[in-house]
Amino acid sequence: MSFPGLLNYWVALILLVCGLIIVMDSRNLVKKLVGLGIFQSAVFLVFITLGKKSDGSAPILDASVSVYSNPLPHVLILTAIVVGVATTAVGLALVARIRRAYGTIDEDEIDDRPEVEPEIVP
């Protein structure tokens, strides 16, 4: 069957670009992290798609099944998902601290503040 063909990869690519646009364009720190999640998930989709075999089944050995999908991408993506959520958690902890320090999570509002450095009179 050749219908889906490369469709999964193309969609993953669009998702990748969407994620990148959010990360670059957004000034809201929470939205940046959401965008990062989409960006990463696009890569997950590429991996999982490349592991799929048509008419295959999940790689759990069973006497009644003959075609299994490729388990290796699954393993890699399990790790990558965990890495992704770890990054998100650290990012959110930073956002929470930034809010405490600045009272906002908008980059523009933070950048507008003048840099305070100890001004020392001679």
Binding site: L36, V43, V83
Partner: peptide, 21 residues
């Protein structure tokens, strides 16, 4: 740095995925 670094690392991950493919 976290955002830039995560984007960079994800690009590396994608590259590894394409190589594996």
């Amino acid at each position: 740095y976290l955002v830039a670094g995560a984007v960079g690392a994800t690009f590396i991950l994608l590259s590894i995925g394409l190589l594996y493919m």
